[in-house]
Structure formats: C-alpha cells, structure tokens
Deep mutational scan, measured.
Amino acid sequence: LRTVEMKKGPTDSLGISIAGGVGSPLGDVPIFIAMMHPTGVAAQTQKLRVGDRIVTICGTSTEGMTHTQAVNLLKNASGSIEMQV
C-alpha cells in the first residue's frame, strides 16, 4: 500500500474516473482508478496510476462501498485528501 496526499480546492477537480464497488456493472469488485485526466489534481501528484485500487479515501475504507458512495466521497472532499492505494 502507498499513501498519496493531494490538495484540492473547492472548485478543483481530482481528474479521475473510478470503477467498481458493490453492485457495479463489473460485479462486486474493489474500487479502482479507471481513467485520469492529465491536468487533474491526481495526475499532478505523479503518484497515482490507472488501475490503482483505492483502499481508503480520507481514512474511510472503500470495502463494501457502492460506486455512488465512493464518487460522492471523492466529489465532496476538499482541502487535504489522503488516499491509500
């Protein structure tokens, strides 16, 4: 596991798309980074990659989380965001 910290302002975009989660079209698979926009906050860290499994978001485990719950957690996060992948 590695921990990645990002700074995100209220109008900034992380610039990632995620897939997976409980009840997702892919089945109940762990949440992972499906796409990254090169100008997004996540890409700027140069520490995240497409395919990385997201284990925690700001200390909250993604295990058993639906896709929608994970998306909302990421969208609503601002300031210092910590992810374990």
Rank of each mutant, 00 (worst) to 15 (best):
G51T: 00
K8V: 15
I81N: 02
V22I: 14
A43K: 06
N72P: 03
S80I: 14
T3I: 10
T62R: 02
E63D: 14
E82Y: 10
E82R: 13
D52R: 03
P38M: 03
G15L: 01
A34H: 11
S13F: 14
G23W: 03
I16N: 00
I81S: 02
C58P: 05
T60F: 12
M65L: 11
I18L: 14
E5R: 14
P10T: 10
N76S: 13
Q84R: 07
K75G: 10
G9W: 04
V50F: 00
A77W: 07
A19D: 11
A34L: 07
E5W: 10
H67W: 10
E5L: 15
A70Q: 06
G64F: 07
K47W: 04
P38S: 07
G51D: 05
L74H: 06
G51F: 04
G40R: 02
M36W: 01
L73C: 09
G9K: 10
Q44F: 00
K7E: 13
A70W: 00
V22S: 08
L26C: 09
C58W: 05
G20R: 04
E5P: 03
V55H: 11
P30N: 05
T45A: 08
P25V: 10
V50P: 08
S78A: 12
E5M: 15
M83C: 07
R2E: 11
I31L: 14
P10S: 09
T68H: 12
V22T: 09
F32H: 14
Q69C: 08
M65P: 01
E82Q: 14
G79S: 08
V55I: 12
L1H: 07
A19R: 08
P30E: 08
S80V: 14
L26I: 13
I31T: 05
R53A: 11
D52Q: 07
I81E: 04
P25A: 12
L74Q: 04
L48F: 07
Q46G: 15
G23S: 07
V29Q: 11
G27A: 03
E82V: 14
M83V: 13
S17C: 14
I33M: 04
S80C: 11
G9A: 09
G27N: 06
A34T: 12
T39W: 13
Q84N: 00
E5H: 15
Q46W: 02
M36S: 03
Q69D: 14
V55Q: 09
L48A: 04
I18D: 00
V29E: 08
I57Y: 05
N72Q: 13
P30I: 00
T66A: 07
L74W: 04
L14V: 08
G21C: 00
S80H: 13
G15I: 05
D52F: 04
A43T: 04
P38H: 02
E63Y: 09
G59Q: 05
L14A: 01
K47P: 03
T45V: 03
G27S: 03
V71L: 13
G20S: 04
A19S: 11
K8F: 14
I57W: 08
T45S: 13
I81A: 03
S13I: 12
Q46S: 11
R49Y: 13
I54V: 11
T3Q: 07
M35P: 05
R53G: 05
T11I: 10
R2D: 01
Q44E: 08
C58S: 10
M36C: 03
S17W: 10
E5I: 15
V71T: 14
L14P: 02
E5C: 15
G40I: 01
T62F: 01
K8W: 15
T66G: 06
P38T: 07
F32D: 05
P25M: 09
